[in-house]
């Protein structure tokens, strides 16, 4: 990147112009995410920096919007915050309930997507796998198909999940999957699967199959080989796939909009309401929390990447 010694003056000017342009694009990428963090501590219900904030006057900043997250929709704010009050927050606060739902749905859909996805990735990366290209295309398609189409299709399917096997006479016993946790978890697992497949097959590309054969020749049954030899080596890929799957579920709103009911309200669903109706700075405090979470996820991934590079003997240049 350094400017070569033979660069002409014009090239020098262009070189620095280019750096400035790149800096501006980086600003475009990152500024919108960082700017909401200070704004979420605004003491006033505005979406812009007040004069007090710009002067770094402590009275311009407050935690009132974070407080609002705990007390919405109708928890008293002016009583002493004892155990009973916190208990009420835990059970009644709309945002806390949404957070619990998000974590619950995210956890189960991640487990389903990661377990099924990892096993399938093992099969897909074997050279003898038949119809590899077609199957891969099917498994990745939930990521490509527009989310509104997926949500609409699931809405019809969940309304009567057994309509297609009506001839068995089971249909009346099937019930519905709309307004159920199961429905949302299954849908989110499907949406997370492509990410698990992509990350795990990418890890398996560098995987030496002769290690498996070595384990087998030493008498290890396939399950032992998997847990003692394969798994530790592909673990970084599996974990990053699981993280992707979790984030996909944690961030998903359209399917929840279409197939879930009030009981399955998640954080994005709650944000969607907040943004559509009357956007209040409380949304910014949620957004800030989510940004902090994604910074944590990114850091985890980076650590994993470095670890796997070290294990494979690839040193960063």
């Amino acid at each position: 990147m350094a400017l070569p010694v033979y660069a002409s003056p014009l090239e020098r000017i262009w070189h620095y112009t280019r750096l400035v342009i790149c800096a501006l694009i980086f600003l475009f990428l990152i500024a919108p995410i960082l700017i909401i963090i200070p704004l979420s501590f605004n003491a006033e219900p505005y979406f812009t920096f007040t004069e007090k904030m710009l002067a770094f006057d402590p009275s311009g900043y407050s935690l009132r919007w974070y407080d609002l997250l705990l007390t919405q929709p109708s928890i008293p704010n002016d009583v002493p915050r004892d155990a009973a009050w916190w208990g009420q927050v835990w059970t009644e606060s709309a945002w806390v309930r949404a957070a619990k739902n998000s974590v619950l749905i995210g956890f189960f859909s991640t487990v389903v997507a990661t377990v099924l996805g990892t096993i399938a990735a093992l099969g897909l990366s074997r050279p003898e796998m038949p119809y590899r290209r077609l199957i891969m295309a099917i498994l990745i398609s939930p990521m490509i198909v527009p989310i509104i189409i997926t949500a609409t299709g699931l809405f019809f399917f969940y309304s009567s999940p057994c309509a297609l096997i009506g001839w068995t006479g089971l249909e009346p016993y099937c019930g519905r999957l709309t307004s159920s946790y199961t429905g949302v978890v299954l849908a989110h697992a499907t949406l997370g699967i492509p990410f698990v497949i992509i990350t795990v097959t990418a890890t398996l590309i560098g995987f030496d199959q002769s290690l498996n054969r070595a384990a087998a020749s030493l008498g290890a049954p396939p399950t032992t080989t998997f847990f003692k030899v394969t798994m530790p080596l592909i673990l970084p890929g599996v974990i990053s796939g699981a993280l992707f799957a979790f984030v996909t579920s944690f961030d998903e709103v359209v399917v929840v909009l279409f197939v879930a009911a009030h009981d399955q309200q998640t954080i994005p669903r709650q944000m969607w309401n907040g943004i559509r109706e009357q956007i209040s700075p409380a949304i910014l405090s949620v957004a800030t929390i989510l940004v902090v979470i994604s910074i944590g996820m990114l850091a985890t991934l980076e650590i994993l990447r470095r670890r796997s590079e070290r294990l494979r003997g690839v040193t960063p240049m």
Binding site: V112, G123, I138, G153, L154, F156, L164
Partner: peptide, 22 residues
């Protein structure tokens, strides 16, 4: 190899391909 992929393939077909077919 195919049996390893089968559970996921069946899952995606039921929870994704069938709804879109519907």
């Amino acid at each position: 190899a195919f049996l390893l992929v089968l559970p996921l393939l069946a899952f995606v077909i039921i929870t994704f391909i069938v709804p879109i077919g519907q």
